[in-house]
Design a protein around this nucleic acid. Structure first.
Length: 569
RNA sequence: CGGGGUGUAGCGCAGUGGCUAGCGCGCAUGGUUUGGGACCAUGAGGUCGGUGGUUCAAAUCCACUCACCCCGACCA
């Protein structure tokens, strides 16, 4: 490709509305253009990258037994009513009305369509397993798109669905996909880590996410310093340390004027935070829930939400709390009535806690469970933090930031039952097909690749997904020797199957070098009188500081070799 | 949806009631340059987000509205 003909322009200045590195560089390099909030066009060079990722994914899906198909984005709303997932998608679902006043959802995912499709197609265990997949745009009206391509409303996604006869089959399909995903990230040159993930309140058994570790990531990963335990903080668990149980003492009131936070309370009474009980109020689908947890721990809202099986969960507002007859700052699990009490299992680890007295400026000493109060539900609802103890090996847990670039999910039979996706097994028994669902967001992977691979000059593409292999850069374009040599190299390399971006523009060296660094093509070849007098060109990897020279004779083979091996010959 | 912010040329910005709305980059033409964002000359490019209002006079003041960005609750 000749740079002079390329649609897209590089920018010197950082776009005002771009905050993160991938967004800035993608726009500055002329690879994407914003159309609306969370809606982007891919310019030719950005599209090339996306297509490379797409091809790698396609090959790995096929290798794992996937079959590519194509489903529509327009989906009758009835399918969503049938699946019962309408409430959980709520406003993120784009819905449009056709000329007959019929409502259509614009596909945010395709579980509904594929399950319906399979239910009409598969009848016998002989037809299973199946792993259909597609690569196409999804539409989700996210409340807040952000970070350029990191979270958008229209996005390019690979979605594969597995259909199996039993649990063993599902496990096998799941394992195949996990391996395929690992292959995809490895082939893209993007090391991703697999972590345990939250599988939501409705259905779903096991779930894992693939994370690209980068400081700018919005997810937090908890992992063990000793074993291979790794999980999203939403899901992560730890071994809770408990204070030694002492004999319960009689409850007594203590005056604590103006003390409403755990930190203040612990300091005021000269006790550790884990000797106190914290009370937090949530509104779960409108119902106030009283949550008790040991003072040193925090509430994991995802765990709580799953436990309560609710769709909306938020901290109780002042009005909601007051209406329930609770005294914020001094609320107590004792003597409350008509409100659901959920406790973290940490309250069993310890004794003689300090807790609220349910009246202003007063706390209680020596509160013990279950002597002094009852709870409706007891479970692990605590946030796991770095420094906690690994649930598997008792090692120390650590944390890192990451970007989610893939998700695999054991769905079970929830949807197949709804869609009547049953099959007849060997013994003639009717059974629901067991499903799994597996997604990779391509645009996000592309953006995450940049978050992970850039410097202060621009992008540093991993070779397998780079828009071109070689940036061919002649200097002094009024020099006939230079232009002729460059033209010949361009022709030879292209004919040899090497993808070349030929900077044939009449620009100064500074402009060309800066654009080359910004665009981030892995190998740069400079053609100039300086090396041409020795019948050679200068070659440099984008990621390295050091350049070297290669002779003109046999250049094509040499470059091919360099590109294949990643070396310097 | 709550909180914060921004809309002026393709991009980045200046312009707090007054005459023809400016600057830098980019773009076009000509010339001089060429190893890390060169220089000179000439030129094109604007419904100042929109609507309504106040005023002799509005990019500027007021009201409403739209769009976009950032921080929180959701997700690949």
């Amino acid at each position: 490709m000749r740079f002079s003909r390329l649609l897209g322009r590089t920018l010197k200045e950082v776009p005002a509305d771009a905050d993160c590195a991938s967004h800035q560089y993608l726009v500055r390099a002329g690879m994407i253009q914003q159309v609306a909030a969370g809606v982007y066009s891919y310019m030719p060079m950005g599209w090339r990258v996306l297509q490379k990722i797409e091809q790698i994914i396609r090959e790995e899906m096929d290798k794992a037994g996937g079959q590519e198909l194509m489903m529509p984005s327009l989906q009758p709303l009835e399918l969503w009513e049938k699946s019962g997932r309408l409430p959980s998608f709520d406003k993120t679902l784009f819905v449009l009305t056709d000329r007959k006043d019929h409502k259509l959802a614009v596909g945010p995912t395709h579980e509904e369509v594929i399950t319906d499709l399979v239910s009409r197609t598969v009848q016998s265990y002989r037809d299973l397993p199946q792993m259909p997949y597609q690569i196409q745009n999804k539409f989700r009206d996210e409340p807040r798109p952000r970070g350029g391509l990191l979270r958008v409303r229209e996005f390019f996604m690979k979605d594969l669905y597995s259909f199996d006869v039993d649990e063993d089959g599902l496990n096998e399909s799941y394992a195949k996909m996990v391996q395929a995903y690992k292959n995809v990230y490895a082939r893209c040159g993007l090391p991703a880590v697999m972590v345990e993930a939250d599988s939501g309140a409705i259905g779903g058994k096991a779930s894992h996410e693939f994370m690209l570790l980068t400081e700018s990531g919005e997810d937090e990963i908890i992992y063990c310093s000793k074993c291979d335990y790794a999980a999203n903080t939403e899901k992560a668990v730890s071994v809770k340390k408990g204070a030694t149980a002492a004999d319960p003492l009689p409850v007594e009131e203590v005056s604590t004027p103006g003390i409403t936070s755990i930190d203040d309370l612990a300091a005021f009474l000269k006790v550790r935070a884990d000797q106190t009980l914290k009370a937090v109020f949530y509104a779960a689908d409108g119902e106030i829930v009283f949550v008790v947890i040991r003072g040193d721990l925090g509430v994991n809202e995802t765990k709580l939400k799953n436990l309560l099986k609710c769709i909306d969960l938020h901290m109780g507002t002042e009005a909601e709390v007051k209406a329930a007859g609770l005294v914020a700052g001094y609320a107590s699990p004792m003597s409350i009535k008509g409100i659901k009490v959920v406790a973290d299992d940490s309250i069993k680890l310890g004794s003689n806690f300090i807790a609220g007295a349910n009246k202003p400026d007063t706390h209680l000493r020596n509160v013990n469970y279950p002597r002094d109060f009852k709870v409706d539900v007891m479970a692990d609802i605590a946030v796991t933090r770095a420094g906690d103890t690994c649930p598997r090996c008792n090692g120390e847990l650590l944390s890192r930031k990451g970007i989610e670039v893939g998700h695999v999910f054991k769905l079970g039979t929830f949807l197949s039952e709804r869609f009547n996706a049953y099959f007849l097994d060997k013994d003639g028994v009717t059974k629901p097909i067991i499903m799994g669902t597996y997604g990779i967001g391509l645009g996000r992977l592309l953006a995450a690749a940049i978050e992970q691979n850039h410097d202060d000059k621009g992008i540093i593409w991993p070779l397998p997904i780079a828009p071109y292999h070689v940036y061919l850069c002649p200097l002094k374009t009024d020099d006939k020797n230079v232009t002729q040599a460059a033209e010949k190299i361009y022709e030879d390399l292209t004919r040899a199957g090497i993808e070349v971006l030929f900077d044939d523009r009449d620009e100064s060296p500074g402009v060309k070098f800066n654009d080359a660094d910004l665009i981030g093509i892995p190998l740069r070849i400079v053609v100039s009188p300086r090396t041409l007098k020795d019948n050679a060109v200068e070659v440099k990897w984008r990621k390295d500081k050091q350049a070297w020279t290669l002779p003109l004779t046999g250049l094509t083979e040499a470059v091919k070799n360099v590109v294949c091996t990643g070396g310097t010959c």
